Computed example of a mutant assay.
Amino acid sequence: MLSHSEDYNVYILIPIHNNIAETRKCLSCIHNQTYNNYEVVVIDDGSTDNSTEIIKNVYPDTTILQGDGNLWWAGALFMGIEHILKKADDKDFLLILNNDVTFDEIYIETLINCSKDSQNTIIGSLCIDSETGKIADSGPIIDWSKLKFSIKPLIDDNKDIIEGLDTLSTRGVLIRISIIKKIGNFIPEQLPHYASDYEYFIRAKNKEYKLIMSKKAVVFSNSSTTGIHYLDDVNGIKELYKYLFSIKSAANVIIWLRFTKLCCPSKYKILNYLRIIGRAFIASIIIMFKLKINKIKLITKSV
């Protein structure tokens, strides 16, 4: 048993939109925790699979906030944080979870113990792909000169934490309420979905808060539930438009331009604006060429 104090209240935020089966697995993990001083807040952004009703029946102590389907990730977190800040003390914690993650029974306890080493640290969770067993996230590293994102290699250095990170994802991250009050809330009007977590924790780092990841606080994520669109899946003009401009797409040009404006060091901004637009142009050329080749194949086949 880990040593810990349950003087801290942990507010757990879980945005959802359908996928009730995954949500129930996550909630089950929470209710099996050795750390019991927590409150679960689910933000249901317009689910159509009776998520709210099922959660109320199975886990009646859960607080459920309702969206209309237009909150997206950052909007749901904004709503949840505003709700929590009305009653949380500075010493308390916020734990943000994806609804598709699972974890062991000492997960929260491990994060709390890790937080004791520093008042100015935000702690992420090592993420494993539940389907492949491979590391999905061991901490983001950003090369702004190339606008390249990678994960920090996991080194067996006898340390329980991973340091030197540029940002964090929200697939299991613990933040002190006092820190949230100083860095502010998410900005859904600028970044409604993708890149909103990266922007938030870059903002925290710029305010001198340390970002680390715990090797012992592990979450298992179901990658098949992601809404990311891949260029290889684009087979038409309409799909190309969605790939470049849909909120559901991780390649959304507008979102990346906004993210660069908010986060990129000044000396790389213009270069990365051009790089983002250039990548969109190249993607368009590739798809147009692909469509033309497919059309030629159809004509040849019909002759």
Results as ranks from 00 to 15, higher is better:
213 M>Y: 13
89 D>S: 15
240 L>F: 06
267 K>H: 14
42 V>F: 02
90 D>I: 14
167 T>Y: 11
34 T>E: 08
125 S>F: 04
279 R>M: 13
180 I>G: 10
150 S>N: 11
145 S>A: 14
221 S>C: 10
98 N>A: 15
153 P>N: 02
168 L>W: 04
61 D>L: 14
256 W>G: 09
256 W>N: 14
126 L>W: 06
55 I>V: 12
2 L>E: 01
128 I>F: 08
204 A>Q: 00
13 L>E: 00
57 N>H: 13
2 L>H: 03
156 D>C: 03
61 D>P: 15
34 T>C: 07
117 D>S: 08
222 N>D: 15
277 I>W: 00
62 T>A: 09
94 L>Q: 09
13 L>Q: 02
191 L>R: 03
254 I>V: 15
271 L>M: 09
15 P>F: 04
206 N>L: 11
131 E>H: 08
46 G>W: 00
106 I>T: 11
96 I>Y: 05
9 N>A: 01
17 H>P: 08
253 V>R: 00
158 N>A: 05
205 K>E: 04
285 I>M: 10
17 H>E: 10
278 G>H: 00
68 D>V: 07
219 V>C: 09
191 L>H: 00
296 I>N: 00
10 V>S: 03
296 I>R: 03
167 T>W: 12
70 N>Y: 13
6 E>D: 05
29 C>Q: 01
209 Y>T: 07
219 V>L: 07
227 G>L: 12
140 P>K: 11
